[in-house]
Design a protein around this nucleic acid. Structure first.
Length: 492
RNA sequence: GGGCCGUUAGCUCAGUUGGCAGAGCAUCGGACUUUUAAUCCGAGGGUCGCAGGUUCGAUCCCUGCACGGCCCA
């Protein structure tokens, strides 16, 4: 970053000398390329001996006196350039030698193969299209320092091929999901990010302010309540892929802003959403692995349907030995959780939902390596989900787990406006008791339900976590281009 | 919020049981017209994260802070 390093100063002097001679490297508005580096590599047979032009960044220079090899990197890969004094002439060859690693150049010349078989352009013309004043990271090890990799992601992308591959995969994964849904008649929509009342998840929001309306607004924590309004409006199949914002801590599994896919289908239930999940996630995997199997952190994972289903309370019983029989008795549940080994301090004064979540996080989740639908969440922690017909204390809800990670949330949507109001009131009570993540009451959403929402299945998928799984990354930051970091304080 | 670890040249990293700070790549000078982590010869480059403390002397030991990483909550 230093602007006083010897390398920076030398490059600055070169730039000023060029400008002084009327050759401003930053004066070019475009450059006509005939091919990308990959096209040259792949189509050498047809292109041999033909004049071609490419543009990119100089990432290696091997000078041999009167002849110099260089590697040019573009979006697709790299291509070798060969500059010779007897081709370019003394003066232009000397200019060529004044180029630095990192400079952006355009090159034209004939394509040939060296005696070692490397596809190479014999440089006839070259144009400096942008001067790099800062030196590049080291060529062999790349950029390793995680802080610099995130703060200066452009350097990470330049220096580490695998990082580019991750974000290419991310794009393919999202495209696969979007294509799958649109091909099946789902309407892609965009709903408000700035909301007067937030909802659709248990989370604390970011607040912001609208000056002209003189009102506080929230950044959405989920698009759910707006997408359900569209179902009420008769759209029947809708989805949104977008950013949501949750005002919570940052760790290997959480970033304050992340990408969610939510899909809603009228006249469908949560079992239909299981099928949709299997197909969507399977399609994402196909898009990057060409099949339904992949490896995450050493575990071979098979996404072939049908995925395992297990009821939440059964899973807790199976993996922790805790039998939660009476969902009304929070004190008993707390005692059982403490006996099972959960830190009593963390459970003090916590509601049942929290205790269940702790048991699940600690004992169940790490075991759900193969894709699993955990079903039948208690109504207390599912304020937007429809009750099960055969058990009013449980909801027709599931969360999919893969590789030990929770990757989504889905249910048969609660469409009874009277029950919805009661659920919101229970949330208000929870909030009054100190639960800062409880849902606020949304009168306008209840009013919308009062006009009649068909039975509907809804699904939310955490795109970042799925990308993390499908690209075998141990950390969410590796699949988010610019993860949130504290700013560097340059003040002394 | 707690614990552990890290911060040394542009980058990747050594190192000093407290006594002038090291390598590779990069940079600069020289040689070299088919190399590809080019090679060979030579050179420059450091407030050792920041602020205090201990000490004759601190990059090293201690305290605090900042930023980051991992784990836990």
């Amino acid at each position: 970053m230093s602007e006083t390093s010897d390398q920076y100063q030398r490059r600055l002097e070169k730039l000023q000398e060029l400008k002084h001679k009327g050759q401003d490297p930053f004066g070019h508005h475009s450059y006509q390329r005939t091919h990308s580096s990959r096209q040259l590599q792949e189509n050498f047979a047809e292109l041999e001996g033909q004049p071609v032009s490419v543009a990119g960044r100089l990432i290696a220079i091997r000078s041999h006196g009167k002849s110099t090899f260089a590697d040019l990197q573009d979006a697709d890969g790299t291509i070798q350039i060969h500059a010779r004094v007897d081709v370019l002439g003394e003066e232009r060859y000397e200019h060529c030698c004044g180029l630095d690693l990192g400079d952006i150049v355009g090159v034209s010349g004939e394509l040939f193969k060296t005696r070692t078989g490397e596809v190479t352009i014999r440089c006839k013309e070259f144009t400096l299209l942008a001067k790099a004043l800062q030196p590049l990271p080291e060529k062999f090890h790349g950029l390793q320092n995680p802080e610099l990799r995130y703060r200066q992601r452009y350097l990470d992308l330049l220096a580490n091929d695998k990082v580019r591959e991750i974000f290419t995969a991310r794009s393919r994964i999202i495209k696969a999901a979007r294509d799958y849904l649109t091909e099946r008649g789902f309407l892609e929509v965009e709903t408000p990010v700035l909301q007067p009342i937030y909802g659709g998840a248990a989370a604390r929001p970011f607040t912001t302010y609208h000056n002209a309306l003189d009102m506080q607004l929230y950044m959405r924590i989920a698009p759910e309540l707006y997408l359900k309004r569209l179902i009420i409006g008769g759209c029947e199949k809708v989805f949104e892929i977008g950013r949501v914002f949750r005002n919570e801590g940052i760790d290997t599994r959480h970033n304050p802003e992340f990408t969610i896919l939510e899909a809603y289908q009228a006249y469908a239930d949560y079992e239909d959403m299981m099928t949709l999940t299997e197909n969507l996630v399977g399609g994402m995997c196909q898009a990057v692995h060409g099949g339904l199997t992949f490896t995450y952190q050493g575990n071979d994972i098979d996404l072939s349907p049908p995925w395992r289903r297990v009821q939440l309370l059964e899973a807790i019983s199976e993996y922790s030995g805790v039998e939660l029989t009476d969902l009304e008795d929070t004190d008993a549940a707390r005692r059982q959780a403490i006996e099972a080994g959960i830190d009593p301090e963390t459970l003090a004064d916590q509601p049942l939902g929290y205790i269940i979540e702790k048991l699940c996080d600690r004992f169940v989740q790490p075991n759900l390596i193969q894709p699993t639908f955990m079903t039948d969440y208690p109504v207390e922690i599912s304020p937007l989900a429809k009750r099960k017909a055969d058990d009013r204390q449980l909801t027709a809800r599931f969360e999919p787990f893969i590789g030990g990670e929770e990757v989504g949330n889905a249910f048969s949507e609660l469409n009874d406006p009277l029950d919805q109001r009661q659920r919101f009131e229970a949330q208000a009570a929870a909030r009054a008791a100190g639960d800062e993540e409880a849902h606020p009451l949304d009168e306008e959403f209840i009013q919308a339900l009062e006009y009649g929402m068909p039975p509907t299945g809804g699904l939310g998928l955490g795109i970042d976590r799925l990308v993390m799984l499908l690209t075998d990354q141990p950390n969410l930051r590796e699949v988010i281009l610019f993860p949130l970091l504290r700013p560097v304080d340059d003040q002394p």
